[in-house]
Design a binder for these strands. Structure first.
Length: 408
RNA sequence: GGGGAGAUGCCCGAGCGGCCAAUGGGAGCAGGCUGUAAACCUGCCGGCUUCGGCCUACGGAGGUUCGAAUCCUUCUCUCCCCA
């Protein structure tokens, strides 16, 4: 399919925008060359990033690079959103404890749909191509595969930091895992990628993509490393498995609340990597935090509003802001409390479990003993208490879980 | 191919025949203090329960024993050393 000749912004402007907020680009000169060629021939660059098919819950850490992809699109280039289904179907053995389940074809397709729903909150569907790497890996024979492995060495694979560390400390590295980077690198060959994006932790893989492309007689891709966003715990990188994430599909109050729970020293980083706030404003925030002139909470609220605005709307942001004030600062009841439908009378323990506020009856009981459960502002002290449900009673479990009871 | 070490709750890691639902740390949850920040203090942290207990758990399967996470056999997996 031939793209019609296209008009791009001046190369210098493109460079300015694209390099902003990156951690490292290898190399800027090559990028400029590619952009120049694209400009003169009217051909968009092919920009690629790969995603794990097993975790279709995108969070604002992923969004850092996806937002960069979006910039490429805004400049007129083509983004390939690559789903690593082949590797997912094989099953990733990395980290002995968390053996990932092998995904079936149906799983992969379902996850892909979930991806689309989320990723198009950021990307332009018109300028996005979704591909699966089983398209090429799934059809290659062992001869072609061995040919690929012949293009790299064990010594060079061990250059990768985490492999070397694990090798030296006697941790397991499966051969399959060892071969992953090679498969990923080949993806760039198959797609003829001009640019590949990834987190800084992907540096080795992105560089290997360059090498392998050259081995196959192609021009090397430009490697775009984006900074890794620290999770809401302020310690580890944001990831779903650690639970320290803000999902882009989270409801407004959730996004707002999670953002408010980040440590103060993350405020500037989040503004920089996760919002569209102009840099002069971020500088001002930085200044305020340093001098202590403004309560950090105020800036964090602004950050939380920006985030909600980005993935929902300004209106939702305003509402989330109000809800937060009511719920946590005034200790009241916010507007949009989820309803919980109850038939007849119910034991307080069963009520908590039904609400999903606790994961078991034992836990429900503990929470009551800890004094975390309130019904209509009244602390529940007896876990045997039967509740005569009345419409619009408010059930509160801890500070965050609030329900409005509805009698059926 | 030979020899050695090991697999414990979300993670790390003690236990080495009964006192073990299992020491300790981390994570998490709840309460206090606050700004749902950090730091700090307190409690909880397998499930069910008529609150007396009961059930499920220490890689899998068998066995010894009144009794096993702890001993034996075997299987699976991991690591180290030698070839």
């Amino acid at each position: 399919m031939n793209q019609a000749r296209q008009k791009f912004p001046p190369v210098k402007d493109q460079m300015d925008l694209l390099l902003r907020g990156t951690s490292e680009v290898i190399s800027a000169e090559e990028l400029e060359k590619k952009l120049l060629r694209s400009f003169t021939t009217g051909t968009p660059l092919i920009v690629k990033q790969g995603f794990d098919p097993s975790a279709p819950d995108l969070h604002i850490g992923h969004a850092v690079s996806i937002r960069k992809l979006r910039q490429f699109q805004q400049l007129g280039h083509t983004v390939t959103f690559l789903i690593g289904d082949f590797t997912g179907m094989v099953g990733d053995p990395s980290g002995k404890s968390k053996t990932r389940p092998r995904l079936s074809r149906a799983d992969v397709l379902r996850n892909a749909e979930t991806y689309k729903a989320q990723v198009f909150k950021i990307l332009d569907p018109e300028a996005t191509v979704i591909r699966f790497n089983s398209e090429w890996h799934g059809t290659r024979d062992i001869y072609q595969f061995l040919e690929l492995t012949g293009k790299h060495t064990v010594a060079r694979m061990l250059e990768r930091d985490d492999f070397l560390k694990r090798y030296q400390t006697g941790e397991t590295i499966s051969i399959l895992e060892f071969l992953y980077p090679l498969l990923q690198a080949y993806d760039s060959v198959a797609l003829r990628a001009d640019v590949e994006l990834g987190g800084t932790d992907q540096k080795y893989n992105l560089l290997l993509g360059r090498k392998i492309q050259e081995e196959y007689g192609l021009e090397a891709q430009v490697a775009f490393m984006m900074p890794i966003l620290i999770g809401t715990d302020g310690k580890e990188k944001m990831s779903k498995s650690l639970g320290n994430y803000v999902a882009i599909s989270d409801p407004p109050d959730e996004i707002y609340g999670r953002v408010m729970s980040i440590p103060d020293n993350l405020i500037v980083q989040y503004f920089t990597l996760a919002t569209d706030a102009p840099s002069f404003e971020i500088l001002k925030v930085e200044e305020d935090l340093k001098t202590g002139r403004v309560n950090p909470m105020e800036h964090k609220k602004r950050l939380a509003r920006e985030m909600v605005g980005l993935y929902h709307s300004q209106k939702a942001a305003k509402l989330a802001d109000d809800n937060f004030r009511v719920r946590f600062q005034d200790g009241g009841i916010p507007q949009d409390v989820p309803d919980l439908f109850i038939t007849g009378d119910i034991n307080i323990i069963d009520l908590l479990v039904k609400a999903g506020a606790t994961s078991s009856k034992s836990e429900a009981r503990r929470k009551i003993e800890e004094g975390a459960v309130y019904l209509e502002e009244q602390k529940i002290t007896d876990f045997r208490q039967a509740i005569q449900v009345q419409n619009d009673q408010i059930l509160k479990v801890g500070k965050r879980k609030i329900f409005r009871l509805k009698k059926v």
